[in-house]
Design a binder for these strands. Structure first.
Lengths: 228, 228
DNA sequence: AACTCAAGAATATGATCAAATTATCCCGTG
DNA sequence: CACGGGATAATTTGATCATATTCTTGAGTT
């Protein structure tokens, strides 16, 4: 099985070393997804070469990919920064997430194995512990891991790629919202998804996913409204 | 170090200066969209530096962006090539195109002005002439121009970005299909879209767009089936 | 058939050039 | 005399190029 784009987390037995620009890309991508880079914050090439101990060319290529992903924006002049969401952007994201991620959920429901469902349950349990502990960073990581793992089973690389793009768009803002509101206001809708997976009911799973997406985006809307 | 006192030359004046990597990106993007680069064809950095008369670094950055766009694929080793579609990919593209582009059509219907509708009619007339003349290159360009111009009026940058990505995926294959089947098998569904725009009926426009998308993708399916 | 070596292409580094933002200073005005 | 605005200089940063290094690949040999 070849990794098409993301996911370098392979076993060290392969012996192949990852290229420098790939590691830089993954590192920056994680920092943006987990909100370590705040929206509106400017990113400089030379600053990244020092903080990541990498050369200039790998950093440049990683930034180009992230701009194409929508995770960074080109500020007219030659400056790049993390974008901040507007209310109109959120409307688009809600529609796109519902259509894309619900379809991924339907497809995954038809293909997922009991062992894979058990793995999803493990991730969801870790997510519950993160919520109870109020660990925002762990909550974001486990929530992303749950959705990503589910979509991997859909066997739909193009739709999965689109979903990854959408997560990169609202990831930084989600981090800001969690920093303001904490994790207690995030009830876990994944239990309904897991139940639908066990029943192998695609439409039920898609409906649960739609509620999960709607709820998550509603949190972002309220958080940004209270922030601005 | 030149110590030129009192030398104020603020008129080197070669006009505006677009960055080289941006120019290379747009050029390559057009070549892929219009099918000048065939699916499966290998793309080398050094070949592009000569054919485009550009440096190595701009070419590298442009290729990174196009890989992130899905317009190019990384062949595992260090080779890059134009991807070829599989039947499973087409299923995903059909779903994504219908949901994304129909929503863009709905939004555009609510915002488009009569002058903009007239511009769309002008593009569609050029498309009709291309079909009558059997001009494949012009047909592809005008068809892309029609959809792009319509989506620009939707005022939805994120959804438009997703749609652009999808077009980059099936653009090369569409060129191959047209080369095999010609343009006579492409009846023009844009007339229904334009009529719905004039009526300012979003659902009617979305329905017409869905038929246009379904018809176009069906052509790709049949063309690829006859080719493989 | 397997191994070795050579050629070519991609990756990565550093240096150099150009542009923009920032800071500073001078001049004008209230 | 103090304050503000505008222009200029300086620093910082991005863009590009030339070059060295590494990896893949293919041919040739044992």
């Amino acid at each position: 099985m070849k990794s098409t784009k993301n996911a370098i987390q392979t076993e060290p037995d392969t012996g192949t070393k990852p290229p420098a620009h790939e590691t830089v890309y993954q590192t920056l991508r994680g920092q943006i997804l987990f909100g370590e880079l705040a929206p509106g914050q400017a990113v400089t090439i030379q600053g990244l070469t020092e903080s990541l101990n990498a050369g200039m060319t790998p950093v440049r290529e990683a930034i180009r990919r992230l701009i194409s992903d929508g995770a960074l924006v080109f500020q007219g002049n030659r400056r790049v920064s993390v974008p901040l969401l507007r209310s109109g952007d959120i409307d688009e994201l809600v529609y796109a997430r519902k259509t894309i991620e619900c379809e991924l959920t339907r497809r995954a429901t038809l293909r997922v194995t009991p062992a894979q469902i058990a793995e999803l349950e493990r991730i969801d349990n870790a997510l519950d512990r993160a919520i109870s502990a109020g660990d925002v960073a762990s909550y974001l990581a486990q929530n992303y891991a749950f959705h990503t793992a589910l979509y991997q089973h859909a066997d739909a690389p193009i739709l999965t790629d689109l979903a990854d793009r959408l997560w990169l768009r609202f990831g930084p803002s989600l981090r800001v919202v969690c920093g303001r509101l904490g994790t207690q206001s995030f009830p876990d809708r994944h239990k309904d998804i897991l139940e639908a997976l066990r029943k192998a009911d695609p439409e039920l799973a898609a409906l649960a996913m739609e509620r999960d997406v709607a709820q998550g985006m509603e949190q972002v809307i309220q958080g940004l409204a209270s922030g601005n």
